[in-house]
Design a protein around this nucleic acid. Sequence first.
RNA 1: GGAGAGAUGGCAGAGUGGUCGAAUGCACUGGUCUUGAAAACCAGCGUACCGAGAGGUACCGGGGGUUCGAAUCCCUCUCUCUCCGCCA
Length: 423
Amino acid sequence: MLQIQRIRQEPETIINGLKKRGVDASQTVHDLLEIDGQRRAIRHKMEEKQARSNALAKEIGTLFKSGKGAEANSLKNETGLLKQDIKDLSEELHTLEEKEHTLLLTLPNVPHPSVKAGKDETDNEEVSRSGDIPSLHEDAKPHWDLASDYNLIDFELGVKISGAGFPVYVNHGARLQRAMINFFLDENRGAGYTEYQPPHFVNAASGYGTGQLPDKEGQMYEMPLDGLYAIPTAEVPITNIFRDEIVNAADFPIKSTGYTPCFRREAGSYGKDVRGLNRLHQFDKVEIVSITDPSNSYALLDEMVAHIAGLLDKLELPYRVLRLCGGDAGFTSALTYDFEVYSAAQQRWLEVSSVSNFETFQSNRLKLRYRDENGKTQLCHTLNGSAMALPRVLAALLENHQTPHGIKIPKALAEYTGFDIIK
RNA sequence: GGAGAGAUGGCAGAGUGGUCGAAUGCACUGGUCUUGAAAACCAGCGUACCGAGAGGUACCGGGGGUUCGAAUCCCUCUCUCUCCGCCA
């Protein structure tokens, strides 16, 4: 959520920035400024009456104590009137506050200056590319065939137990999953991230904190009996560790990591990219979350990008890094880099990581602050990224490293799997 | 599932109608003392909004009510804890 103070200070910057997303915010900003002005005027008026009422109440108390009951009672006339006024004003104030809040929720984050205007993924900029795209032998297969040939993943079994999009990993497939989780967590820990094992269900307050609610309400699995939501990413519970906190600036950057399964309803995306591991209702992901002060957040974003690149290098996968254009970046993001690995048999790029700086967009909702050098509280910048989403990494590993003799496991990962080839 | 207790500042914990944004202790920050440290002593120490400032307003889990006046009384919701039962 954008800060109203910022909209007051630089409405034009915000309107122009949002144009890069293809969003025309001029009407909303205009309405917000008007409502905000009214709100503050009414608040001021109400506070004046409250001050008067407080003073009178004090006076009445003193008068009663000194036995001047008649005088005290005469003052009560005025307080009665004030009371009604205050009630009316406060109702008006609440209405305006609600309107303002509702409007604020509709505005996405303002893109960073480096973000290009654009409509969708076709307008994203490739900023780097690494690794060689393998030339596969003639009988090379897509990962869903490999998964079944080598008995690694049983999609039909998942359908029986739960439904489409809930694969069952078996034997070497299951072990590979477990190995990747440990590999990623160890690498992240080695880079200074504190490891967490957070809850997989969160309450509504947490959903609002990171912006899943109300923006993406229908994307989360919901347990209405208990008022809980299955997390769509570890970002939600891990970032909410810091909700309503004033963190110590000396601890910056605060770096956290955690593995969780992720649950997504993927409503409205049936039939699109659902083959194999490309899009699932439940998948495993290791997430990194960082918190720092505004002056260092973009350097930290670069550091996170470099860290993720290092992971893909160790997995010996070809990848490219994209800077998302305004229209393709998420609602809450100021700047997002996507990592895509090349899946050689499908002959397409698969998104395996998305790294974003949210600036104060999340922390404003989270009330996540630090104290600056003057002792004033300021909103932190929050960032996060996948390091790494497992299914598509697995898909690329299987496809790219297949040989006529079996599927080779990259050296870094083989230390975790205990085997270096799947036959 | 049954029974009970509770929700107050970073933490612990007082406060049952006015002078309470709130005692006290711990923690934290600054200072005195000390070769240094500890101890002791002194001072400071919640958040948000409005205001140039003085200052004002709100907040004692959320919402509503009683009252001139509510942390304190009433209603209601939520959450937490303890004991019993069941159970990984």
